[in-house]
């Protein structure tokens, strides 16, 4: 994505949020307690992957955001996957086809890559502000937000060993640092003026062109797999704004 495109998206979002502020001449909420405009937010985010295909992750990341107004902001973060690897499903499939896979090192499947570290940044759009009431006892204010951005991440995968299925995960291949994109959305619960808790679902993906191997009759031949490699994360972050 070119710089022009990014600028275009940022410009459109700013215009949208400016228009939204103009619309709110007769606002629904006045003296809004948890305004975001002009504030920075530092966050610490543990996350785990969901809807996994063959890989699984648990990550921890730290970020910093800045909001231009109540509706739009920028965020940057970096993180590391403290747990990364394959799901047992893959091992199970492999174990049932040891003979078929003899001689194959690189499985011809998409979504085999897992992340280790990542650095990224993007836009945050918060169109909706509300509050929840729990059994007439507890009230919590929240923002619904959407995120989208790009960065880089280090991706890896496991090759098959010679003695399947036991050494299935013994050879880790560094697939390299790839341009990675993300989008997602979530709820920011405001628990105090400066503290917030974010519950978010985010899809991290990169475009993967992968030279794998497969068998034609009894011969191992190369096969190119082209697809987006996705990791979907549920993130629970604690934010402190100032």
């Amino acid at each position: 994505m070119g710089v022009r495109k990014i600028l275009l998206i940022v410009g459109s979002c700013l215009a949208l949020s400016a228009a939204a502020q103009a619309v709110a001449a007769e606002p629904i909420v006045r003296n809004q307690l948890f305004g975001l405009g002009g504030r920075f937010e530092a966050s610490l985010t543990p996350a785990f992957s969901v809807f996994d295909k063959y890989t699984r992750h648990m990550t921890i990341s730290a970020g910093l955001g800045y909001f231009f107004n109540d509706y739009i902001g920028l965020e940057f973060e970096g993180g590391y996957a403290v747990l990364h690897g394959d799901r047992s499903l893959l091992k199970e499939i492999v174990s049932t086809a040891v003979d078929t896979l003899q001689g194959i090192k690189k499985l011809p499947l998409s979504d085999l890559k897992y992340m280790t570290w990542f650095v990224q940044g993007g836009l945050v759009l918060c169109p909706l502000y509300g509050k929840l009431e729990l059994s007439s006892e507890l009230a919590v204010s929240f923002h619904l937000y959407f995120v989208g951005g790009a960065g880089v991440a280090d991706w890896r995968y496991h090759q098959l060993g010679d003695a399947l299925p036991d050494d299935f995960e013994r050879i880790e291949v560094d697939y390299g640092v790839k341009p990675t994109f993300y989008f997602g959305g979530g709820l920011r619960f405001h628990i105090a003026r400066a503290w917030s808790l974010r519950l978010e679902i985010r899809d991290e993906f990169f475009y993967d062109k992968y030279e794998a191997e497969h068998k034609v009759a009894t011969t191992v031949e190369p096969k190119t797999i082209t697809d987006f490699n996705h990791v979907t994360l549920v993130r629970l972050s604690m934010g402190w704004s100032f």
Binding site: Y129, G130, L132, E133
Partner: peptide
């Protein structure tokens, strides 16, 4: 147990049960 309400861009009011 949760009842919520919100405004979109501080305009219009929505209500929901969770």
């Amino acid at each position: 147990p949760i009842y919520g309400k919100w405004s979109l861009f501080n305009w219009g009011l929505g209500h929901a049960d969770i």
